[in-house]
Design a protein around this nucleic acid. Structure first.
Lengths: 221, 221
DNA sequence: GTCAAAGTGTGAACACTGATCGCAGTGCAG
DNA sequence: CTGCACTGCGATCAGTGTTCACACTTTGAC
């Protein structure tokens, strides 16, 4: 069973992460200061290093949690959808990004140079869960036979790897890949402000594009 | 005519920017230090402030140049294409991102919080030039009548704004918008390392997706 | 119960960063 | 030639991540 010390450590660890998340939401990743977090929880800056070896480790932890939260949100919306589950998932993805811009930036913004999350580590796993959340409606469409498949080159190893991961034949996986990159492209441009010049109300444009995407690819039921 | 002082100032200014760009290419935006730039050109750190009011101004300058360079590269490839100019442009976009990852991250990565480039300023202008570089092949396809247009809601103001900017009717503009976001989505995911798990050779996948996109949207000649 | 070991927190310090300010020189225009 | 704007510099400030020696507390074995 957990000793008293282990419980306290767990608790302090959680408090650090929660406080860091609060600071992140307020000022963004670049403004996330270990010292500020330390004083927020009434600790000396050096004390944090008993829990995280460095700033990067703390941020990596936040990233992992962020991927998990995003994946959960998308999955929830997809499963609760009354109409097109794929469109519902895409809208949830967009919504989460817009309501959590700083977290989204941590997940999909400028990467840390020379840093690669360890393959099959929790961060990589959580990251793939996001993409995977979009796949089930595509599998359904595949079974339904509505998917607008087109012949693909069987020698494209990257596509075959992707196909194996999402459990689809390559030609259907290609559609899933396009769907995912298209959604992400629109959302990342909007979230990072590159569509601001289109005016105050970009939501209908995003919605209509998701809808058209679903229909064009033959995902829509 | 330019006085001696003006010439010197221009020259120093250019040297600062060039050195900053070199540092950016090496270590990324986060590692771009004013002091390091200063010592590289044999100047005191404080001296830089005679040329740029702060670090952000210098970075903004680099961003503007980056957008211009990217737009030029895409335009060049598009105009030199023998086959599908749209695919050629998309490939050039991807190639520039992969060969200039830190500059690309500055352009399309995590934005500076609360910072918005002044509308109709040089940065915004250069940014739109990138998207605009993809439009001509779509206009051609529109004239050719191959574009796979689908009815769009005429009340979507954001789409109408976009349509006016690219000089296309809304239903054709919608295709241009989707094309642009799809390309960007794939490239940003790949450049920022989110497709690393697909293996060493993602190029054929990207190429095949661009090709399929061009054909599916009816852009390909 | 004793006691050494392991774990936890602290204050001081280091090497950085961006930024400011007053003080020197220097080129330029009147 | 003189006054002024411009240019550059050293010193300095506040803030950052990180390290380290030191105290204190909890733990587990004897």
């Amino acid at each position: 069973m957990a000793t008293r010390r282990e419980r306290l450590r767990e608790q302090t660890s959680a408090e650090i992460k929660a406080t860091a998340l609060a600071h992140l939401r307020e000022g963004g990743g670049a403004a996330l200061s270990l010292r500020a977090v330390a004083v927020s929880i009434g600790m000396s800056p050096a004390g944090l290093y008993r829990y995280y070896p460095n700033r990067e480790a703390l941020i990596t932890d936040l990233i992992t949690d962020g991927f998990a939260a995003l994946a959960e949100e998308v999955t929830r919306a997809r499963d609760a959808a009354k109409g097109d589950a794929f469109v519902a998932a895409a809208l949830a993805y967009r919504q989460w990004a817009l309501t959590h811009p700083h977290e989204f930036a941590l997940l999909y913004g400028t990467p840390i140079p020379d840093y690669a999350a360890p393959e099959s580590g929790p961060t990589s796993h959580a990251s793939r869960a996001v993409g995977a959340a979009f796949v089930p409606p595509i599998i359904e469409a595949w079974h339904r036979g509505t998917l607008k498949r087109r012949e693909v080159d069987p020698t494209i190893t990257a596509l075959n790897t992707f196909a194996a991961a999402v459990d689809l034949p390559p030609d259907a996986a290609a559609i899933a890949f396009t769907a995912w990159t298209t959604i992400h492209g629109l959302v990342v441009l909007e979230t990072f402000g590159h569509l601001a010049w289109l005016g105050e109300n970009p939501a209908p444009l995003a919605e209509s594009r998701f809808q058209a995407l679903s229909e064009d690819l033959g995902i829509a039921p």
